[in-house]
């Protein structure tokens, strides 16, 4: 489980004023400043997209789209919320759109069907190296499938709240701000998400 409520960025751009200065420089059209700003946040953005969408290709698209939106719209950023909140609002909106489209298409994320049954592309090589211990491999495979199933059962919003709280370590109040909802609604989402997952993963936990 992850970082503090401010996300990974706080550690990389020490004083707040540095960030404000960078944002102002980007607003004046300074590309180097934009690159620095991106580098302060992009690892956590990529990780969030990767874990929400369970696909490296989709994560790459989210990264590109999110930071391009930042670049195109930063002139309208007025410092009335933190840059982290503003950026994460953009990122989660893109991810939510993607998850909703997937729900419609019933897409499977990283899991692909092969002649030998479903395979998680991301774990392709980890699975290879687990051949030495078939029992462990079977357990891991079943657990992976069950977790993927549990995550798929969540609504896009529950999934996002869970992701931001569990893996990114953000506080529910902050998550509410990012998603444009109340802390109470974020709490309810987190509660429902954990309940659903405990039901699906019952024998494993």
């Amino acid at each position: 489980m992850a970082q503090d409520a401010t996300g990974a960025a706080g550690a990389r751009l020490s004083p707040k004023s540095d960030e404000a200065g960078l944002i102002r420089a980007v607003q004046r059209g300074d590309q180097d400043a934009f690159e620095q700003l991106v580098r302060a946040y992009d690892q956590s953005v990529l990780r969030l997209a990767m874990n929400l969408l369970r696909s490296a290709e989709d994560a790459r698209d989210v990264y590109q789209e999110a930071f391009l939106r930042v670049y195109r719209n930063i002139h309208s950023f007025r410092f009335d919320c933190s840059f982290h909140t503003w950026l994460y609002r953009i990122v989660t909106n893109i991810c939510l759109d993607c998850l909703r489209k997937r729900k419609v298409r019933k897409e499977e994320g990283t899991v692909v069907e092969t002649s030998e049954g479903p395979v998680d592309r991301i774990n392709e090589f980890e699975e290879e190296s687990a051949h030495a211990d078939p029992e462990r491999e079977l357990f891991n495979r079943q657990l992976s499938q069950r977790i993927e199933g549990a995550l798929r059962d969540l609504t896009p919003r529950e999934r996002t709240v869970f992701e931001l709280r569990h893996y990114q370590g953000l506080r529910l109040r902050h998550i509410g701000e990012i998603l444009g909802t109340s802390e109470e609604a974020a709490k309810n989402c987190l509660f429902r998400a954990t309940q659903k997952m405990r039901i699906v993963l019952g024998d494993f936990v």
Partner: peptide
């Protein structure tokens, strides 16, 4: 439950971040 899910956290593949940065600055 939290421990099981912790193990499931995905790391972006090696090189993906550098690739994303490169593509972004090009765009």
């Amino acid at each position: 439950l939290a421990q099981v899910l912790d193990r499931r956290e995905l790391e972006p593949p090696v090189g993906l971040l550098a690739e994303c940065r490169h593509d972004l600055m090009r765009a």
